[in-house]
């Protein structure tokens, strides 16, 4: 077979493939040009689009398509993001989204706009998938099962509070201990002044008893910095536990204002692609 023969055999398939690529990119260009967002998503991942929306299955491989737009993915994401973000914040208005630095394809999703709101997950603008943090959702499911007065950290909080009360009372007793120490020092000084030994043996016994007590008090006083440090640690624990509870409570309140329960909310998040595409199709 000549070179020309080989080329003649391969040419139609190659031309065909190039045409498909040109056609694909042309379709994508047209969709972007005409603001046909749904069409853009369909072109980016026809399998997902068709599977989810029961459309005719395309034979094109996603990987093949992906490679065609690999170098402009971030730009496509920047194009798609405003509409999607608007959809998310309109339909889940207690969620706040913040772009991930240096990656236009991703947005961090937080519950609420309060102080130190927790990150629920990450939204991929190109795939319209919200990857959520299972630990947060399971905590919320657990919290929802509790009565109004209960919290997940209630027992821990109670324990830490007890420890704090003990430590605080130890610290508060320091003035009393200082005074007691002063009295002992005075008494010891008085005994020392009675060197003549008028009281003999009883003086010695008293001195020993006082010295023991003095030693004990000094040792207790020396523990002050250590106790203060422990108190600080316990207060930090208490704050952490109370903050966790407060965050969960607010998150649950926000979700409950819109959904019957947490699983329904999670399901909604998992179906965000379908609901978004449906919404786009209705436009």
């Amino acid at each position: 077979m000549t070179i020309q023969d080989i080329q003649t055999i391969l040419q139609p398939e190659l031309v065909n493939r190039l045409e498909r690529k040109i056609s694909y990119l042309s379709d994508l260009q047209s969709a972007i040009k005409n603001n046909q967002i749904s069409q853009v998503y369909q072109l980016l991942d026809p399998h997902k689009f068709n599977d989810n929306l029961q459309k005719i299955l395309s034979e094109t491989s996603v990987a093949q398509l992906d490679s065609l737009v690999a170098d402009i993915k971030k730009d496509i994401a920047a194009f798609l993001a405003p509409e999607l973000i608007n959809y998310v914040v309109t339909n889940f208005d207690f969620l706040t989204l913040e772009p991930v630095a240096d990656d236009t394809t991703l947005y961090d999703v937080y519950i609420g706009d309060w102080w130190d709101h927790r990150q629920l997950g990450t939204l991929n603008v190109l795939t319209v998938v919200l990857t959520s943090d299972d630990s947060i959702t399971s905590e919320l499911i657990e919290t929802a099962k509790l009565s109004d007065e209960e919290t997940l950290n209630a027992t821990k909080i109670q324990e830490v509070k007890k420890v704090i009360t003990g430590l605080e009372s130890f610290l508060a007793d320091n003035t009393k201990r200082s005074l007691e120490l002063q009295v002992i020092e005075d008494q010891l000084a008085e005994i020392s002044a009675n060197k003549s030994g008028l009281f003999g043996r009883s003086d010695k016994v008293t001195r020993e008893a006082l010295e023991k007590k003095q030693e004990l008090l000094i040792a207790t006083q020396k523990r002050m910095p250590e106790v203060e440090e422990k108190l600080n640690k316990q207060q930090a624990y208490l704050l952490r536990f109370e903050k966790e509870d407060a965050l969960r409570q607010l998150e649950l309140q926000a979700i409950s204002a819109y959904y019957v329960d947490v699983p329904t909310f999670i399901t909604e998040l998992q179906h965000i692609y379908v609901s978004y595409m449906t919404k786009l199709d209705q436009k």
């Binding site: 706009d113 309060w114 102080w115």
Partner: peptide
């Protein structure tokens, strides 16, 4: 310190926001 204001406020339904 801000966490502590958040916690105390949240207990009374006053929400500290960024």
């Amino acid at each position: 310190i801000l966490d502590s204001l958040f916690v105390l406020g949240a207990k009374q339904q006053f929400i500290l926001k960024r």
